[in-house]
Amino acid sequence: MNSKNKAAAVKLLILRIFVYAVIIFLCALCLFFFIMLFVNSSRTNSQLQRGFTLIPGGHFFYNLNNAVHDSSINIPRGMLNSLIVAGLSSALTTYFSALTAYGIYVYNFKLKKLAYTFIIAVMMIPSQVSAAGFVKIALELDLDNKLWVLIIPSIAAPAVFFYMHQYLKATMPLEIVEAARIDGSGEFATFNRIVLPIMKPAIAVQMIFSFVASWNNYFLPAILLTKPGKKTVPVMIAQLRSADYSKFDMGKVYMFILLAILPVIVVYFILSKSIIKGVTSGSVKG
């Protein structure tokens, strides 16, 4: 009996070591490329040509200065454009998704069921599938190179609506609305002053996700934004790939990449707990 227990304990220990090894390997794999990025963004072009190392080169600010003042890729402008698009998109998408979810959750009207079913049905359709028509309209109305064309569509985000609707169902009792009405609160005021604060956690999570999605968005902006002053960060990064590679200062290239992803990484490390929680609450089971 005793030796059997011992064997089981040894087996568990081996299993545990194996599992830790696998997890640590995967974590290292995830971090490796970013560590390389940090290291290389601090090395000059000539240092980089000397090959692989994990020791920083000490020229971080030199590369930063070069990247920010590059004549062909105006990365500060790109970051500002991206910030405008992602910031406004995430604000609009969360506010109007919450508003729509509330409208369908609280009120009874004839087309309520149809509206809900429609949104759920189109939830999985990727935006690329309607891109041809979108580009056609944008060109016809001279709306390419206009940032707002990328911002306004975020008002209608079926997946965010679904999340908000699930959240309302789980957290908001309808009595609150009744009580507000008795107190003489108007319908819009009830939503803005009472319901929005209740939905704060859901809004925060969705704001982060939609900000990141918009910040990273590449497909449509790459087609529509062709003027240098209008490009967002992903479009500029893609430009690096097609530029004549041999002419490039590689330290600067790494710095461009770092600048493109750093804002998201910083936000992530501050809010990682609620972001990870948000990943699961967005799925079907809720």
């Binding site: 995967l26 974590c27 995830c30 971090l31 490329f33 970013f34 390389m36 990025l37 990141v212 910040w215 990273n216 590449y218 960060v233 992903p234 990064i237 893609a238 690096l240 790939r241 290239v253 790494y254 990449i257 493109a260 992803i261 998201v264 990484i265 992530y268 490390f269 990682s272 972001i275 990870i276 990943v279």
Partner: peptide, 18 residues
Amino acid sequence: KTVIYMPNLIMASAFSML
């Protein structure tokens, strides 16, 4: 979990360029 989820938020075009 924080580490293994992180790449999901990274800009795919920048990650590819890297």
